[in-house]
Design a protein around this nucleic acid. Structure first.
Length: 264
DNA sequence: AGTACCACCTGACGGC
DNA sequence: TGCCGTCAGGTGGTAC
C-alpha cells in the first residue's frame, strides 16, 4: 500500500496526533524492522524527547526530534501507523511502539516486516546515499521530462524506479499510465514531449487526488483504475476489459482499449 | 544502463 | 479440515 499518497497521509496523521508531546517510552517489538540503529540506541535517543515536525520524500517519512536528528520510517508493503489510547486498540502487527506522556501511543504496524525504522542525522545525505530521484510532487514538468529523457526501457519501470523519480510504486504507476492512456510496456524513448507532459500532468493529478481522499481506494473517483484491479473487470471508461500482465517484474493491470500497445 | 531473478517476511486464498 | 503452491501495493543484491 504505502506509496507517496499513503505516506503523505501518514505524515499528516503524525502532524495531527503526535507532535509536541514528550515521549515516555519506546518499545521495539521486533528488531527486524530496524535499519542500522539498535533497539537500545533508538530507545535512549527517543526517550524524553518530543517530535517537532515531519517531512516526506518519496515513500520515506521523517519525523524531526526536538534536539535534532530524525526518525525515519519506511513502510514497505504492509506498514501503517496507528495512534490510540487503550492498549486493546494496539494493532495486530505492532512492531514498534511509542508511548507519550499523555497516555497515548503511536504504533508502527507492519505485518510483513518489510518496513524500516531508523535514525538519521542528515536528510540530504540520506537522500543522496539512496540516490533518490526528485520527489514527484516537488518537481516541475521540465525536470520530469529531463529525468525520463534519454532513458531506455519501459515507462512503468522508470516510473517505479525511485532513483528516477521518488514516490510511485506498482499501484499508482498503473493508475497514472491508465489516466495518461499509455501502455505500461511503452519504451520511454517512444514518448515525445507532449506525451511526457501528459504523463507528468496525470502523475500530479492522480497523486493529489489520492492524497485529498486520504489515499483510500474506496473514496477515489470511479474513473480511477484502482478499484478495478481484476482481470476481466470492465474498464472504468467503459472501453474494454482490464488485463493483467507482467511488466517491470510486477503485476500490471491496464486497459488494452485505452492503453494500446501500438507504439511500444 | 536496464532487466531478470532471488531474498527478505507473513498471511490470505484457491485447488485438491 | 488440512496441506501446498502461489501471490501480495517495496527494496536491495547479484548476475547478465
Amino acid at each position: 500500500m504505502p506509496e507517496l499518497p499513503d505516506v503523505e497521509v501518514f505524515k499528516r496523521y503524525v502532524n495531527s496526533t503526535s507532535l509536541h508531546q514528550k515521549i515516555e517510552s519506546v518499545e521495539v517489538r521486533n528488531t527486524k524492522i530496524l535499519g542500522g540503529v539498535s533497539a537500545g540506541k533508538l530507545q535512549s535517543t527517543l526517550k524524553g524527547r518530543m517530535f517537532e515536525s515531519t517531512r516526506r520524500y518519496g515513500k520515506n517519512l521523517f519525523v524531526e526530534l526536538d534536539d535534532g536528528g530524525w526518525l525515519l520510517m519506511h513502510f514497505g508493503m504492509t506498514g501503517r501507523l496507528k495512534y490510540f489510547k487503550d492498549m486493546d486498540q494496539d494493532p495486530p502487527h505492532d512492531r514498534f511502539l511509542i508511548s507519550f506522556e499523555n497516555q497515548y501511543h503511536l504504533a508502527f504496524d507492519c505485518q510483513r516486516m518489510l518496513g524500516k525504522v531508523d535514525l538519521i542525522e542528515d536528510l540530504e545525505k540520506f537522500i543522496g546515499e539512496k540516490k533518490l530521484g526528485p520527489d514527484l510532487l516537488e518537481l516541475d514538468s521540465v525536470s520530469f521530462r529531463e529525468r525520463f529523457g534519454g532513458r531506455k526501457g519501459a515507462v512503468k519501470s522508470a516510473l517505479m524506479n525511485q532513483q528516477v523519480v521518488a514516490g510511485v510504486g506498482n499501484i499508482y504507476s498503473d493508475e497514472i499510465l491508465f489516466q495518461a492512456r499509455v501502455h505500461p510496456g511503452t519504451e520511454v524513448g517512444r514518448l515525445d514531449d507532449a506525451a511526457l507532459e501528459k504523463l507528468f500532468r496525470e502523475t500530479r493529478r492522480v497523486l493529489k487526488a489520492a492524497i485529498e481522499r486520504g489515499a483510500d481506494p474506496q473514496k477515489l473517483p470511479n474513473s480511477f483504475l484502482l478499484s478495478h484491479r481484476r482481470e476481466g473487470e470492465k474498464c472504468p471508461r467503459g472501453n474494454g476489459e482490464i488485463r493483467k500482465i507482467k511488466a517491470a517484474g510486477r503485476t500490471a493491470y491496464y486497459c488494452p482499449a485505452c492503453q494500446p500497445k501500438a507504439n511500444c
